[in-house]
Amino acid sequence: METARWIRHATMDDFDAIMAVYAYARKKMAETGNPRQWGDKYPLPERIQADIEGGHTLLLVDDAAALVDPPEDPDYPEPELDEHRGEHERIIGVFAIFHDEDPDYKVIDGEWLDDQPYTTIHRVASSGLGRHAAHDLLSWSMRHFENVRADTGMKNYAMQHILETHGFTKCGNIVMPQNKDIDQVRLAYQRHDVTDGTVCGPKDTARQLLSV
């Protein structure tokens, strides 16, 4: 039995599975010395629901649940957007993506690369069922969006490494004041690939793919 990875939009049918992925991610962050980036509750259920209903949540999935020994480090083609649901599907990773200006990014202790329209990546998490989930999600984003911003915790050294190895520039610090139970200061990153000197934000193909 062969399988592959692909990316699809989440639906409310995925809600419980997504909650479990974020619970696993919080546990792993705590175990690696980063217990306060997400605390023991973030992202809250209402935030997850709003992301799904707004068409922002994307899932990295495969169809390997029926395999006796699913591969942990598969050599698959780069995943692309495909909205089908696998018969033996597993969620490998999850993230939320936005194209509007992020209010938390308006003030920065530092400087963004530019003030042009951008796409934001939030709430990247792995289920632990396969390796390289963050790599696959970021690589997909880089293929489809030219100007991308993200943030991560001061002690999330793994995510900092992933962002930097994907060509993101550390731009400074931002403050996320909406939740007193988690660390509010985050490292801000941006990557802007200019292909023709004028285009930024979602590429035309990505605009079509992500219109839901």
Rank of each mutant, 00 (worst) to 15 (best):
1 M>I: 10
7 I>T: 09
10 A>M: 06
11 T>K: 11
15 F>R: 12
17 A>M: 12
17 A>F: 09
23 A>H: 11
25 A>Q: 14
25 A>P: 05
33 G>M: 06
36 R>P: 00
39 G>T: 00
40 D>W: 01
40 D>A: 07
49 Q>F: 00
50 A>Q: 10
54 G>R: 04
55 G>W: 11
58 L>P: 00
61 V>H: 10
65 A>D: 04
65 A>R: 03
66 A>Y: 13
70 P>S: 02
71 P>N: 05
73 D>Q: 05
74 P>F: 03
75 D>L: 07
81 L>Q: 10
84 H>P: 00
90 R>Y: 08
91 I>M: 08
92 I>W: 00
93 G>C: 01
96 A>D: 13
99 H>T: 15
100 D>G: 14
101 E>M: 07
101 E>D: 14
104 D>V: 13
105 Y>V: 02
110 G>P: 00
114 D>M: 09
125 A>W: 08
127 S>W: 09
129 L>K: 12
130 G>D: 05
132 H>R: 15
133 A>T: 07
133 A>Y: 05
140 W>Q: 01
144 H>W: 10
149 R>Q: 04
150 A>I: 11
157 Y>H: 11
163 L>W: 00
164 E>Q: 15
168 F>H: 06
170 K>S: 05
171 C>Y: 12
172 G>L: 04
185 V>Q: 12
188 A>M: 03
190 Q>D: 08
190 Q>Y: 06
192 H>W: 14
196 D>M: 11
196 D>S: 07
197 G>T: 04
199 V>R: 15
200 C>V: 13
200 C>F: 08
205 T>M: 09
210 L>S: 11
